[in-house]
Simulated assay, not measured.
Amino acid sequence: MTGELAGKVAVVTGGASGLGAGLVRRFAAEGAKVVVGDIDTEAGAALARELGDSVHFLAADVADVAQVTGLVNTAVERFGGLHVMVNNAGVSGRMHRSFLDDDLADFDQVMHINVRAVMAGTRDAARHMAEHGGGSIINLASIGGIQAGGGVMTYRASKAAVIQFTKSAAIELAHWEIRVNAIAPGNIRTAIVRKSATGEDLRRLEEFEARIREQMRNDRPLKREGTVDDVAEAALYLATDRSRYVTGTVLPVDGGTVAGKVIARKPKSG
């Protein structure tokens, strides 16, 4: 590690597990002080113990805007500032056999967590950054917000909203040297979908995942599976001065999936 974030303070929402925990570990390894917000108090506290005094866990439900504000305030009060805000917390919503079966019962929850919390985190971080020389805000989207497809329609709509909001916020906040970018992971194994399924739904989900991952492997230009570390590396780039002239971008971390499907090559003759 090169200490690229030495002297920096970051907030990572949804940082107790999955992609968020990967980002927290990488940021801490690069010298950052990190405030982790999550509803999973057990995993969050364990992560903070593992990483030591540079990481502080605060139980926070980003569906409550006031708790998002609390994360920003905690970073400033505990570590003396805020340089990087990662709005990572998200939910997938319920899986349905068909959109025709979707009662949209989870619409408000998905939008509150996936969109409103991102807007609140961006706003609250920017209020501090605007008075302290700028900073970097990173919003976690998904290739589902870029590339149309069936299933989890509310989730796809929420991530598309994050992308459009990110670009719009980047334009407005550039005046204060605040950079706002999004990462769009794809084909990264995490538990976000599984958390919304139990029992028979979970069994069907596992079968569905197996089929869809095989299709993803066939469609993806890069054949190796993406990892949490791949996303953390992209976040590190956007968090550091290496990306000081980069704002309003959406960076897919997806093995080339959104670039287009693989063209089948004929075997060489003779």
Rank of each mutant, 00 (worst) to 15 (best):
V12R: 12
G14H: 12
I212Q: 13
D53M: 05
M119K: 06
V72A: 01
T122G: 11
V68K: 08
S243Y: 00
G14D: 08
H128F: 10
R25M: 12
D219S: 08
S243M: 03
N181A: 10
R211D: 13
R224E: 05
L82N: 00
V262H: 09
S196I: 05
T249P: 10
V162T: 04
M129S: 02
A264L: 12
R26H: 07
F165Y: 15
M153N: 13
V9N: 00
I263Q: 07
M111Q: 10
A32D: 04
I212F: 06
I188E: 05
L236M: 00
V115G: 10
E209S: 01
G133W: 08
G226E: 08
V115T: 14
T227K: 14
M95L: 10
N181V: 05
A89S: 02
A174Y: 04
R97P: 00
G31N: 11
A160S: 15
R244W: 04
T190A: 03
A120V: 14
V11R: 06
A10N: 04
N114T: 02
P185F: 05
L58G: 02
G255V: 03
T122Q: 13
V34I: 07
R116F: 14
V36N: 01
A45L: 08
G93Y: 02
S17Q: 10
F99G: 02
L251F: 12
A239N: 08
M111H: 08
A48H: 13
G80E: 04
N114K: 03
G150C: 05
G90L: 06
G81D: 07
T2L: 11
A125D: 07
N187G: 04
V36S: 06
G18P: 06
A264V: 14
G3Q: 03
M1F: 08
S98G: 01
V72M: 08
M119P: 01
V258P: 15
A191M: 09
A63I: 11
E50Y: 01
D108F: 02
L140M: 14
R217N: 11
T74F: 04
E42S: 06
A210T: 09
M129W: 15
D102H: 00
G270D: 15
L5Y: 10
E206M: 12
L173C: 04
V228C: 12
S17V: 02
N139A: 13
V84M: 04
D124I: 00
T166F: 15
V9G: 00
T74K: 01
Q67R: 11
V118E: 00
I146G: 06
Y155D: 08
I138D: 01
H83C: 11
V76K: 08
G15V: 11
V34F: 05
R156M: 12
P221F: 15
I183E: 04
V162I: 07
G199F: 14
G256A: 06
I192E: 02
V115W: 02
Y155E: 06
